[in-house]
Amino acid sequence: MVTVAFRYVRMVILSALFFAYLLFPSLYRIGDYVRQTNPWSGQKYVELAFSPIQAELACLYGHPIPGADSHYRDEHGVQVSTARTNTTAVTEPIPNIVHFIFGLQNPLRNPQAGHFDFLCYLAVRSAIVSLRPDTIYLHYTYLPSDHSNNNTNVDDPMNNPWIRRLSKHIRLIHHPPPATDNNNIQYSHLSDMMRLQFLLEKGGIYLDMDAFALRSFHDLLNPPAGRDVVLGHEGGNRWGLCNGIMAARPNSTFVSRWLASYEHVDFSREWNYHSVRLPKKLAGLHPSEICALAPDAFFWPTWTWRHVHWMHEELDTNTTQFWQEKIDRHGGSLFGNQVAYHAWSQMAWDRHLSGLTPEVVRRKDTRFNLLVRQFMEEDL
């Protein structure tokens, strides 16, 4: 009798575990939804409505900042700033070059590192089409193809079909792996430091691999003298300045100070302090060194559950027409002051981005797909 009861209990437990396994993705999504949308999550503050202030609009459109330094362009188109000290300084524009970083982790040992895929291709294509840069640098350590199963593909980027498509428009810059390539390295923070180093040395534009340039950056590449870095606020409450999209002149004092702050930091104890909150703090301490943009320039909609869903929900015919007309009217963006969109892959990958293919982007009408279709080559 005991044996029969034991077998019955074991069967019930195994059945429960089996069904839990089958339902895990749905249960996980439900739990994630509740975690993110409950009244105590704080996401409602990130989603707060906002209005750009004059200084933010001046930085976006290359105008003098009210109450700050005035500037004009000479007969050669070079910006000249007249500071309150009655001295003049000739300031070159931010270089129209683009930096991407990908593949710092070995995907053969760290499958979660991902591959240079269709979404990455679209991000680089957006820079090619919208920014028309002098150079695009793709900094990498590993660039395997989607289906690599041997070390050859890791070593040769041209085995990746998306890299082959982009190869005429990009310069591949290989960086050797860290001396101690192990699981203790915080690769996200390594990427944070590398992007600042590249901007400090060469200047230009930095874009995350899930960031899409929607329109020209021409105006914002001409910030007033001394304001050598352009960052965008994250969140309607402007709680931070995000490093996912940046532009800077070489040798920026602000970037140098920011990079120096990474020394002697235990990154296992923090997530986004140095990448979002610290630059906001530094901007408050050194406001004359930075041009800060309103949230809708780079980082709106945000990473919250509702905003991500809004970007990827399927649209009916009338709504599609409404947003397509807006995109056409704004020259490629959803909103009048938007020049880029960060797709927040950490929040959107499982639910939306992982399933994107050329066919899905062309066929399915979502706000995100409407934005990025313009970057697909015709033979895809």
Results as ranks from 00 to 15, higher is better:
D69F: 01
H115I: 09
E47Q: 15
R373K: 15
Y28F: 08
K168T: 13
E377Q: 02
F116R: 07
H139W: 14
Y61D: 09
Y142Q: 06
E56W: 08
N272L: 07
P301C: 06
H71L: 06
A89R: 14
P287Y: 07
A248C: 08
D228M: 04
K202N: 11
I290F: 11
T87V: 10
F6P: 00
Y137F: 15
T37C: 06
T320D: 07
E314P: 00
H352C: 10
L104E: 00
G204A: 09
L122E: 05
L166P: 00
L241K: 07
H76R: 10
T253P: 00
M11I: 10
H218E: 15
D155A: 15
L278W: 01
K44V: 14
F116I: 10
Y341E: 04
Y121G: 02
R165A: 06
S345C: 12
P133F: 00
L334S: 03
I13Q: 11
V80T: 11
H169S: 15
Y8K: 08
D117V: 10
L293R: 13
F212I: 11
S252W: 02
T87N: 09
A294N: 13
L370R: 07
I94V: 12
K168R: 15
T3P: 00
V124R: 03
D228A: 12
F100W: 03
N149C: 08
R7I: 05
H189W: 13
R165T: 08
A225R: 04
I128S: 09
P223S: 13
T253L: 14
A89Y: 08
P250W: 08
S70Q: 04
W271R: 08
A283C: 07
D296Q: 14
L23Q: 09
I163G: 03
T180A: 15
E75T: 12
N86D: 12
L172K: 02
F100V: 05
P95Y: 03
Y121Q: 06
M194D: 07
L282Y: 07
Q197V: 10
A49V: 13
R329S: 11
M209T: 11
T302L: 00
M347W: 14
D210M: 06
H63M: 12
M347K: 15
L172D: 04
L220K: 10
H286Q: 12
Y206D: 05
A179M: 14
V265D: 01
L241D: 08
D365G: 01
R10D: 07
P133L: 00
D296K: 05
Q186D: 13
F19M: 11
D210G: 10
I101T: 03
I128L: 09
S256Q: 15
R132D: 03
